[in-house]
Design a protein around this nucleic acid. Sequence first.
DNA 1: GCCGTTTTCGGCCCGACTGTTTTCAGTCG
Length: 584
Amino acid sequence: MTNHEIAVRFQRIADAMEVQGENQFKIRAYRKAVDTIDELGEPLADIEARGGLSEISGFGEAIIGKTRDFLTRGSTKLYEEMTQAVPQAVLEMAAIPGIGPKTVKALWQSLGITSVTELETAAKEQRIRSVTGFGAAKEQSILEAIERGRRLSERLPLFIALPYAERLANDLAHLPGVTKAEAAGSLRRRKDTVGDLDFVVATTDPAATEAAIPQLPQLTEILESGHSKIVALCNLNLRVDIRLGKPEDFGALLHHFSSGQAHNIQLRDFAESHGKKINEYGVFVTESGVEESIIDGNADESAIYAALGLPYIPVELREGRDEIAMAARGALPQLIEESDFRGQLHEHTTWSDGSASIWEMAEAAIARGYEYLAITDHSPLVKVANGLDRDRLLAQQEEIAQVRDALAAKYGDSFTLLSGVEVDILADGSLDGDEDILSRLDIVVASIHMRYREEEAAMTKRILSAIENPHVDIIGHPTGRLLGRREPFPVDMDAIIDAAARTGTVMEINASPDRMDINDIYARRACERGVKITVNADAHSIKGLSLLRWGLYTARRAGLTPEDVINTYRLPRLLAILKDGARN
DNA sequence: GCCGTTTTCGGCCCGACTGTTTTCAGTCG
């Protein structure tokens, strides 16, 4: 069984236990195991083979035993009991936001309701109010929750949510009384998709701000409204959480509502073990029975960490992985920044489906302060993108040579144009280009654009063939996903990462906002196993070069440093890697 | 179910809002 398959089963166990009213800490233990497994850098089967299951944090006797059961026989007694005891349709009721496990359990037991449809009917027929603890208002709120659940968007891609949230934050900042407003939550951590929008608002006139917020045109429905919190639905059909606070609390609030829940729980634990207390209003110590704040009013996020004796933890890392432990021992990575990039290695021109010429792209790169840029137009298979056949690729080489001369005449030797191709990986794993030409190019990016609906084994074999090909330097957008539109290919990423490590093949974080591919978890895993990364905008225009920031977000979430990313290197080091592979 | 500078039992993050049983349980983040 794969890690994911095991994680899904532990999740199912936890969900079922919740409806059954099991001990919440027991449920939390299973949920923690799910999160841990999702982030593991190694298949559980491999970890078990080397006797390492007990070293995994949160894995005790019971969870290790069940993991072994899943690995050896594909199931375990508790899983069978739980799936038997609690039908999937019952869990679907509890999955509706606003309807929780206690409600589901009560209605299941008292009225025998086992599905969302039955729940809706019972509420409409006013049968729910007959149950102790339930009234007409609850009936109404159930109907609204079901209806809202149908309208509610799935998680939205960051590239849609981020510009929207920035505009909304700006609108909030201009409301009466507001001194500062900022988008927080997973959006601020730059997660590739977001399930809701969080905002932190500092105000000197809470009543006026509270009254003005529901008037914002983006907000279509107010779900909750209190003195420090307003929850609404916005016209993207996303939940919006707005937290109001005093200006002096802004830093603490922003910290709390920007960090992942797991990070906050761990940070509270850390604070407690150092005799301190942290919440969304600050950091406190208790001196002779009196609680005192140990941060200044108007403290920013770094002051919060400083009060706990920790260095500042960049927001992208606050997922509750191992960042607090790393911070405590002074081992946080120096995250890569946009200014670290010396060039990009995967761009298109008018030769295929780009809108700028080679010369225009080169000058745009120079304007960005780059030292190099690789031109990598499509190979012939990608007909819709006007892919280059052998003759056109040879002709393009001539133009690249001419542009190089002209650039040298105008700018000297401070900039280097690299010649390359984005070659398609065919269904059998071979490349859509002739050996002799590939060998003459500075750089070969191999990607899949066609026939991506194969089985996992076939897709994995195909990418592995490309990795083994000595001409291939980089695997482009390795999982082929399009956020919100197309799922990633089914691939065995561990096998791919291992092969890339062995052959010195570089893996791309493609920065197209709708790709962000590979994702942060894979990038981190690849890096931990010695694979080098490249971040590229895959630009199809001059403006396209600036899309790099979306890949930067992923790289930072993965904890990458400039050393991990080859297009931060100076040219000679980069060329050595393109010639011999990126082996450590 | 997990864990330990409070170590094999007794804790486990905690604050905001809603609805209802009008003092607190349920839900969420």
